[in-house]
Each structure stands twice: as structure tokens, then as C-alpha cells.
Amino acid sequence: MKKQLLYFLTAVLFFTRIPCPKWVNHSPEILNKSSRYFSLVGILVGAISAGIYFLASFVFTTEISLVLAMIASIWTTGAFHEDGFADSCDGFGGGWTKEKILIIMKDSRLGTFGVIGLISILSLKFMALNYLATSKLMMVLILISGHSISRFIATILLYTHTYVRDIDSSKVKPTTQKMETKSLIISGFFGVFPLFFFNTYWVFLSLIPLLITYLYLGNFFKKWIGGQTGDCAGALQQVAEVVFYLSLPVIWKLFL
């Protein structure tokens, strides 16, 4: 149990700005093991975001509350996944060879493709959430689910695709080692767990577009760079989160 706590806290320390005990570190072996709790970290981040939304909604409009919720999740993670998405936009938008794409993605400066990508995906995320904001409790559940399930989809990429960057230059070292099947199963459990709290099991149909998103981006990454990097996983998480939010109104209209 102590080892599992260490794995979880390592994931929290690596993916968020939440303070952790000093005995938690970033050793490569522990980081690799911590991948099983990526989705659980998503539940934690989603809960923080949802909590901010719930409290703010008693004072502010839905739109302001949603913006505050999005800011809360970005602040909690230090824009970890958004940074990966922006770097991926710059890399695949401006590079035409594997080497050039990886060089651009490693560059900490934000380019035109990254700016446009961030504006587009954050705007779409806000509009989708605003459309879904029919009740406070439902929005709390949607936010938690979106953060957890999208991180599970990202862990599938880590499991199936080879890491293509040298370890010493990596920003996301857990992805440099082969993810264990056990870790993927545990991540999957925490990823889909919040979906059981919806009042309909039709919500599980959202897994179909999410898996299609994984297959498409996974093939795209493999075609251009031969595998994945941490930035690719971050990009997939962001896209999968938005796809989940966009899938819900379609499911409601077709099956409810």
C-alpha cells in the first residue's frame, strides 16, 4: 500500500503543482510505475476544477464560472497538457521531417501554430461546456469525467506507441519506458469510473469517438515521427477532453 501511495503521489507531483511530501521524487522507475494513476490524477484535477465552478456559480454567471473552472485546472497542472498540445501544433504544423518536428517541439518558444491551436481548443472547450451547463451537479460530474477519461486515452498512447526522443532531452520521462499492462488496466478503471455516476449508461458511448480520436492521432504521430513523445500525449489528452464534451450532447439527443 505504501508503494502505491508513492506511485500516486509521484504522479501528482509530476503532473500538478500540488505540494507533496519531500520523500516523493522523480526516479525513472517510480515515474514509470506512476502511469497507472494518471487517470486518478485527472479525477483530482477535475474535482478541483468542478469545485471552483460549483462555488463560483452561486455568485457569477455560468460563463464566468466556467472560465474560472478552466483557469483552475490550468493552474493546478501548470498548463502541462496545454503546453504539450501547443508544442505539437508547432512541431507538426511547421516541420516536414521527423528531425525538424522534434526540434520544434523541444523549443520552449511558442509559435504561430501553437497560439492558434491553444486559442482554438480552449475556445471550443469553453463553448462545449457552456452548452452542457444545464445544472450545477451535472457540470461537476462532466468536468471530473472529462479530465479522467481523457487522461486514460492518453495513457493508451503511452502503452501502444514507442517513445521517440532521447531520455536526457525529455520533458516527460515516464513515457520513455514501456508501460505495463497492469498500469494500463488500473488507469482505465479510474478513467471510466466517474461515468458510472451518470443517470444513464448511454454515456459509455462516448468511448467510441474517444477511441477513434486515439486511433487517428496515434496513426498520425506514428506516420510523422514513428511513435510518440510527451507532447503528443499531452495533445491527445486535450483533444480527447474536448471530444468527450462534444460527444455528450450528441448522445443526449440521439438516445435520451
Rank of each mutant, 00 (worst) to 15 (best):
M1I: 12
K3I: 06
Q4M: 11
Q4D: 12
Y7I: 08
F8E: 00
L9K: 10
L13R: 14
F15P: 01
T16K: 02
C20A: 13
K22P: 02
N25D: 13
H26Y: 11
H26Q: 06
S27D: 12
P28N: 02
L31I: 00
K33F: 01
R36P: 00
S39T: 07
L40W: 04
I43F: 01
G46F: 03
I48W: 02
I48L: 12
S49F: 01
I52A: 15
Y53M: 14
F54A: 06
A56R: 02
A56M: 06
S57N: 12
V59L: 03
V59R: 02
F60W: 06
F60Q: 03
T62V: 10
E63I: 09
I64A: 11
L68M: 15
A69H: 11
I71N: 13
W75P: 00
T77L: 00
G78T: 05
A79F: 04
E82D: 08
G84F: 04
A86H: 02
A86V: 06
D90L: 09
D90V: 06
L102D: 12
I104P: 09
I104N: 07
M105I: 01
M105G: 10
K106W: 12
D107A: 13
S108H: 11
G111I: 10
F113N: 10
I116V: 10
G117Y: 13
I119D: 10
I119T: 05
I121P: 01
S123I: 07
K125A: 08
L129Y: 05
A133Q: 12
T134S: 14
S135A: 15
L137D: 14
L137R: 12
L141A: 08
L141F: 11
I149T: 05
S150W: 09
T155H: 13
I156L: 11
L158P: 00
L158D: 06
T162Q: 13
R165A: 04
K173I: 15
T175S: 15
E180Y: 05
T181Q: 07
T181Y: 07
S183W: 14
I185P: 12
I186D: 01
G188A: 01
P194W: 11
L195Y: 13
F197C: 11
F197Q: 09
N199C: 08
T200N: 14
L207G: 04
I208R: 06
L211H: 00
I212E: 03
T213H: 02
Y214C: 03
Y216F: 07
Y216P: 00
L217R: 04
F221H: 05
W224K: 11
W224A: 07
I225E: 07
G226N: 06
G227Q: 01
A235N: 00
L236V: 03
Q238C: 15
Q238K: 07
V239K: 00
V242Q: 14
V243T: 15
F244N: 13
S247P: 13
V250Q: 14
L254P: 12
L254A: 15
F255H: 15
L256M: 15
